[in-house]
Amino acid sequence: MQGFLETAAKRVPQVRTRPVLPDLLGTCRARLGLDRNRYKVNPGLYAAGRPGSESPVIVTANYKLTFDTVRFALHGRDLWLLVVDTRGINVWCAGGKGTFSAEGIIEQVRKTGLERVVSHRRLILPQLGANGVRARDIRKACGFEAVFGPVRAEDLPRYLDQGIDEAMREVTFTLRERAAVVPVELVLGWKLILYSFIAAVLLSLMGPELSLPAILSRIGLAMTATGLGLICGAALFPLLLPRMPRFFSAGGAALGLAGALLVPVIGPAAAWPSLAGAGLWTVTLSSWLALNFTGSTPYTSPSGVEKEMRRFIPWMSGAAALSAILFVWGNFL
């Protein structure tokens, strides 16, 4: 925020269009998944630059990463930003959940008195919000014509100058975009790490040799396998996605197998069944994490994911059980 702008309706806060340090730190925290579920902006009308009654109105969500991407893309422009209450969720997911909707947009148009702020009757919506917004409902309810702008906020300046083109309309999933979601995937893995630690402790306590060094060595082996599975499934898999087969689970399992070969190399020494069990756990975990990554891609359909799950989840459950049995068997040798 850098001040207020007086309008016919009310005072409108003016946003910065260049990031300051707290924005960058907040982005890092959100990207690391530390507080991404409460990273919100107050809904309402904002000014970028010094807009007037003829200036375009851009509609967006109240997730702060989204809001930041939009306002920083519009540096040097004079326009209005209408922020809809999506409970701090991005446009596409909020569209799917029904919070980025015609109703939500109409509500903000009315609350902010937008028809007194601008003389035109046109709202520019993000294209990815179209799964939640029936554009004609907005015109019927408040007289504003809703048009779908580009997919990416970074294309907004080009869109405002030249109008839409095919490249602005298609989603992408570049290496850079995939790398941006890896930290969240890894940090959200803490639950998995915790659960597998508890399981590792319990499984390590089963066996005739119960000296502390023996138990710690077994836990170390299990955690090595878990760590390798996490790296393969949640980091390598997203980055190598273009080279992976169609079934995410199969690709994750293949990468996990490569990771499993490292278990005896970097993990503590153990009997062969324990090593095999630990390696199998790396494969299984990597396969599951890869399957789970379907939820982070912009191209897998729910029908496709469900089909893949019906085929692979039974194998994963079996493999997880077998890895635990092998691991404990090794304790007795």
Binding site: C93, G96, A130, R136, T294, G295, P298, S301, V305
Partner: peptide, 26 residues
């Protein structure tokens, strides 16, 4: 098609049908 449902929602004549959903394993 990833079944986002945007086309069906915005089609004025109901010419398109799709069961939209979230492709999230969990």
């Amino acid at each position: 098609c990833m079944e986002c449902g945007a086309c069906a929602l915005n089609c004025p004549t109901g010419a398109i049908e799709v069961t939209p959903g979230v492709g999230c394993a969990q």
